[in-house]
């Protein structure tokens, strides 16, 4: 609780900031009034351009933070992150295939569900390769392989597109962006992300017990198979649906739990919701940053996230070196 209030306030403030920053200057008061109806261009810009952007940034961040914390809790490895181990990349591949081969048009939720399916395959593959204990070396190596394959297939699918502009999109799918997304995208992704959040929220008690080891957890009455299933589907739904409309954004699930872990007393159940709020705050802050630094250039979210996340990743590798040897 001590942590909840400041984090929630931060998220609320960044949400408002995200709504008031744009390529045109709209006075804050007028902008916020425009959210709640009225005629003219300001309400149009607020409701149809800035609001979906802010909602997507917040919900994508929450998905990534939550998924990172859950996977790290389950594998008991601080390097397990959806972007690094190829889950986001695979989700992006699923989304690209759905869009390029017309699957996305078959029924309403086909696009996020395809991304979910591919994310699920990636998580299954990772868990299969890294084993229940998730040793760092196998985890990272498997992640590199899956990321590389997903990235290559994404590029291939876009290069084969009949639309000459599709090639420009490779950057979007690898780096992620929430620029100029519409309420349509929110309606596509948010329900499935919410299902993912709900599933991951139920893993808290199991993850807490798991810190004592698998035998101890089972002795405490935790069904490890059920826990694993909820984690798998939860991560795939949250990351898959978010990536389907915003591309693969890396490092969120690495940075946020890392910062919050000491403050939460390293208790996985607390870290879960704290990372969801922290992730939302971080991605919104990054999205505000890309708009402030280069307002007309559509800088990708992944660029900012990698600048923050990669040094931390190096630090973590350095720290876990002893474990690897």
């Amino acid at each position: 609780m001590r942590l909840f209030l400041p984090l929630a306030t931060l998220v609320a403030l960044l949400f408002i900031a995200s709504l008031t920053v744009g390529s045109t200057a709209i006075p804050v008061g007028e902008a916020l009034r425009g959210l709640f109806g009225g005629d003219g261009v300001v309400p149009m810009v607020m409701q149809e351009i800035r609001l979906p952007r802010a909602i997507l940034a917040a919900s994508l961040g929450a998905s990534l933070g939550l998924s990172g914390a859950a996977m790290q809790g389950y594998l008991r490895n601080p390097l397990a992150e959806p972007g690094l181990i190829g889950v986001s990349g695979s989700a992006a591949l699923g989304a690209v295939i759905a869009l390029q081969y017309g699957i996305a048009g078959l029924f309403g939720l086909a696009l996020p569900l395809m991304a979910l399916l591919f994310a699920l395959l990636a998580v299954l593959l990772i868990l299969g390769l890294a084993g229940p204990r998730g040793g760092s070396l196998t985890l990272i190596l498997a992640g590199i392989a899956i990321s590389a394959l997903a990235g290559a297939l994404t590029s291939l699918a876009l290069n084969l597109s009949q639309n000459p502009y599709a090639v420009y999109e490779i950057l979007f799918w690898m780096m992620g962006s929430v620029a100029d997304r519409s309420m349509h995208h929110v309606a596509l992704a948010l329900p499935i992300m919410a299902i993912g959040w709900a599933l991951l929220a139920t893993t808290g008690r199991g993850l807490d017990a798991l810190t004592l080891g698998e035998d101890a957890a089972e002795a405490l009455g935790i069904n490890l198979r059920a826990l694993r299933l909820r984690l798998l589907i939860g991560v795939a739904a949250a990351v898959g649906a978010g990536t389907a409309v915003a591309g693969a954004v890396g490092f969120v699930g690495l940075v946020v739990p890392h910062i919050l872990r000491p403050i939460t007393g390293a208790k996985p159940s607390t870290l879960l919701w704290a990372s969801a709020l922290g992730g939302a705050a971080l991605v919104m802050a990054a999205d505000i940053l890309v708009r402030v630094i280069l307002p007309t250039k559509d800088l990708k979210l992944g660029v900012v996230m990698a600048l923050i996340g990669a040094p931390l990743f190096l630090h973590l590798i350095y720290k876990t070196r002893r474990e690897m040897n």
Binding site: E48, I49, S161, Q162, N163, P164, E169, D180, M183, H184
Partner: peptide, 16 residues
């Protein structure tokens, strides 16, 4: 419109 999907051209279909 071009055939095939791309975000660059999807922008032109934005609800706004």
């Amino acid at each position: 419109p071009y055939s095939g999907h791309s975000q660059a051209t999807e922008l032109l279909e934005h609800p706004v």
